[in-house]
């Protein structure tokens, strides 16, 4: 359903700061795939997700989602097909607007916006129901400004927003990295549930190897703007942290150090 072929991204082309961030990425995903993406800093993980979302133009190659050519489509139009959750919990929501307003904005993603009131009672009831499933007590605080919530709560709301308006693809860019371990675990469980309930195809970047192994049915490892290693199915199930570490050391040519990849 997602078909990326020979994707190149070059930043600051023709300047001393030129960076060839993606060097011919090929990626094919099936509907319902949950792919975890790992790799060191500067490997091109976020660049890959951002080029699918349309944050910047790509140099060459193509991105096709369910037969729709996305390569040159402006980012706000791609939002109809692609939803996202960012690393920073502040980015995914509008802090000065209420929970209800944020959800209503997301529910209209990819639809024609009109001069009708921003939401209606039927929709409010649906939002309440969906929030209640999260078990965070947010269903009774619909009019509260999102800016008053904790990072974990905001991320949960962003996740719910990303699942509204039936997108085809969900992009998660280290969406639990800024949360404490307990909240991160909760948000990841929510992620899995939402992906399953809505039959979403998911690309999830993570710095946490055990999460990369635990979640999803496919895994890709990126290095220097290319996919260095990928596996799926049985092979993915049998992955171990030591194996991944060895693989990583071999492809990157250096030992894992510092905070490049957390073992969790």
């Amino acid at each position: 359903m997602l078909e990326i072929s020979n994707l190149h991204v070059i930043f600051n082309k023709g300047t001393v700061n030129e960076k060839h961030a993606l060097k011919g990425v090929d990626l094919k995903l099936e509907e319902g795939d949950f792919v975890t993406v790992i790799g060191g800093n500067g490997a091109g993980k976020s660049t890959l997700l951002n080029s699918i979302a349309g944050t910047f133009p790509v140099e060459s190659g193509s991105i096709v989602l369910d037969g729709v050519e996305l390569t040159k489509m402006p980012d706000y139009k791609r939002a109809k097909y692609v939803s996202r959750v960012f690393q920073d919990p502040l980015i995914g929501t509008a802090g000065n607007m209420s929970i209800e307003e944020n959800l209503a904005l997301a529910a209209r993603r990819g639809k024609r916006r009109t001069l009708r009131w921003y939401t209606n009672n039927e929709e409010r009831a649906k939002f309440k129901e969906l929030l209640a499933e999260f078990d965070l007590g947010l269903e009774d605080r619909m009019m509260q400004k999102v800016g008053t919530l904790s990072g974990g709560q905001r991320q949960a709301i962003t996740l719910l927003m990303a699942s509204l308006a039936s997108p085809k693809l969900l992009l998660l860019d280290e969406h639990t990295a800024a949360l404490d371990p307990k909240t991160a675990k909760k948000v990841l469980a929510l992620t899995e549930k939402i992906a399953k309930d809505n039959n979403l195809t998911v690309l999830m970047i993570t710095h946490n190897m055990s999460d990369a192994i635990k979640y999803g049915n496919k895994l890709i490892m990126m290095n220097e703007g290319k996919i260095a290693f990928s596996c799926e199915g049985e092979e993915k199930v049998d992955l171990t942290i030591p194996f991944l570490m060895e693989k990583f050391e071999k492809t990157v040519g250096e030992a894992l150090g510092g905070d490049k990849l957390l073992l969790g």
């Binding site: 996202r84 980015i91 307003e101 904005l105």
Partner: peptide, 18 residues
């Protein structure tokens, strides 16, 4: 509501198709 979102958080607004 889209205009308010744009003023509050442009990245979010774009991600929501505004």
């Amino acid at each position: 509501s889209s205009i308010r979102a744009t003023g509050n958080n442009q990245t979010m607004a774009t991600a929501q198709g505004i």
